[in-house]
Design a protein around this nucleic acid. Structure first.
Lengths: 341, 341
DNA sequence: CTGAAAGCGCTTACAG
DNA sequence: CTGAAAGCGCTTACAG
């Protein structure tokens, strides 16, 4: 790259000090500065296509106006959508976003945090990986502002924005019960992540309140690494039981997409043979022959709130915010009342 | 945030100069430096949890090891996947990625470029919006390294990585012709973007080589802003003709997903009543009852090559690379031979 | 083997 | 109304 023009260049050409140039270009001390000189400086800056060097500014101010965004995997549509919202919102506030994928791996997450820290990000927005509690505590100890999204750890008293996963799952399953389904299965990831556990809790509680079997006979877990194969196995299991399931609740959009692709290939009739409720949105759902009922998370709110809370936290690190939003059950044909069939 | 520890802190505590600290922590001049002092410095750095300030380094070196990534929309799965690959690849090379969405809007694109430029990114990877030629020329004039992906402008002699869209479309349509389809429709965006025009050219050329009607009677365009409504209209038109289409080729994954959702809702039998070929991959395709034939772009190669070419270009700005990769037609049931039906 | 010093591009009290 | 100077945290020729 060519050498960029600096304030010094402008100052020298005009025979003034860089201080003056700085004041003028930053619209400071406007009342004390000669209008003509100010005009000249602005004009020359324009002419030379001067662009302030943020890096130098940052070194002085100790602020980069940059947010570090750590997601599990930006190519997951849920994360991508959130990333998009966060970037938009950050830009409105004159912040940029550097991002990285932690891949559900605490080691990668720690490396990313270190990397972004050395790049002096002003704070983080993190969808934390399983097992990353310690590094978050460390961040907190170092007074680095951050906010967790989507997931959080009930033991950690840090900023977080998430939905009420318990309630969302409870509502989804209660809806199925209300519509007359008797054997409601659930497929979830095998995990200790709180937000996913909450979904299971909601599922169980709804079953209990509906006076249904709470033995867990209709509940199955899937290892995230072998999602495609295991989802198939679990569905086979649930359908092969002596009392086969007549409804299925997926704990996440990945699971739902894998599961629905399989159900599709099995030529199972939804909802006649099997009712379906998914977690999270996906435009993929529209390609399935039967419009799917799903839990919609308020992504826009989550993203915007995350930026808002982070920026507040950068300014005033004291206050912590725990924001719990409500998800919405979008009811479609895949879960219509059993009797109506 | 708490004050971070700097080299100065380490130097003072040890009674040495910051120069020494710098040399040691950067493993320079190792043969000339006293092993004991070196050891002490390293230990104290560790103890104090010292993290180099990239910002300061950048100010000196005029390098930020940061790539600016400008995409149309990161929440589009195609872009998101690419973003993921680029970030991975960048990280391997010790680069970070700052991203932004231009939303097919040249004004936004220009703003993003300015913003990232003031943040001193070392170069750009850009999926350029329609009408952004001028700003790219300006970048080039300023000797800012960049590489275009996915799209490019044939008149601009700049780095770009893309697939042979003409060939990909030609192959797709030739495949349909070979399989006995007579009235092959295509739905594309209304655009002057070269890569999309190339797809139309491939479509037309394949029709011509197959001695089929080249009047454009089976070709339709869609305004990106009203994609959902217009895709429906265009499909209605193509199916409502006196000689209705018996096959349909979608020019992009967005169009395909919208289109397939509609075709799904119309209860049209694929491929019996209508054969389908889509452009680009989408896991959504798996939810459709009939496995879809599609053109697969080598995203991994595109992303990796983009980073490679950009980094080369940062080091040696002279050489320009125009990389054209081949797409692959993934054949599935949605386009099986007509006779076999 | 090590330190003093200049400099990267900016900001900002201070002096005049 | 304006400039000289210090400083942000680092690097790197240069001198000794």
């Amino acid at each position: 790259m060519k050498k960029k023009v600096s304030m010094k260049d402008i100052a020298q050409q005009l025979g003034v000090s860089t201080a003056l140039v700085s004041y003028v270009l930053n619209d400071q001390l406007t009342d004390r500065i000669n209008k003509d000189t100010a005009e000249k400086i602005k004009q020359l800056a324009e002419e030379l296509n001067y662009r302030p060097n943020h890096i130098a500014k940052s070194l002085k101010s100790n602020r980069t106006n940059t947010i570090g965004l750590i997601l599990a995997d930006i190519s997951n549509p849920f994360s991508a959508h959130l990333a998009r919202i966060i970037e938009d919102e950050a830009k409105k506030n004159k912040y940029s976003v550097i991002f990285g994928s932690a891949d559900e791996n605490p080691k990668k997450s720690q490396d990313l945090i270190n990397l972004l820290l050395s790049r002096q990000v002003d704070g983080f927005i993190i969808a934390p990986a399983e097992g990353s509690e310690k590094q978050l505590l460390l961040l907190q100890k170092q007074d680095v502002p951050f906010v967790l999204i989507d997931r959080y750890f009930p033991g950690l008293n840090v900023n977080h924005i998430a939905i009420d996963n318990y309630k969302a799952a409870y509502d989804a399953v209660a809806h199925l019960i209300r519509n007359g389904y008797q054997e409601i299965g659930m497929i979830n990831f095998k995990t200790t992540l709180f937000h996913l556990e909450e979904r299971v809790r909601g599922y169980n509680e709804a079953l209990k309140d509906g006076n249904m079997d709470v033995s867990g006979a209709n509940f199955r877990e899937v290892n995230e690494k072998y999602i495609t194969e295991e989802v198939k196995q679990r569905i086979d299991e649930l359908l092969g039981k002596t009392t086969a399931i007549d409804a299925l609740f997926f704990g996440s959009n990945n699971l739902a997409i894998e599961g629905m692709a399989y159900i599709q290939s099995l030529k199972i009739k939804v909802p006649e043979e099997l009712a379906i409720v998914c977690f999270d949105e996906a435009n993929a759902y529209n390609l399935f022959y039967c419009p799917l009922t799903y839990v919609r998370q308020p992504l826009l709110q989550i993203g915007q709130k995350a930026v808002e809370v982070l920026l507040a936290s950068i300014k005033a690190p004291e206050a912590l915010e725990h924001v719990i939003l409500n998800a919405e059950l979008v009811v479609n044909e895949s879960s219509i009342p059993r009797k109506q069939r």
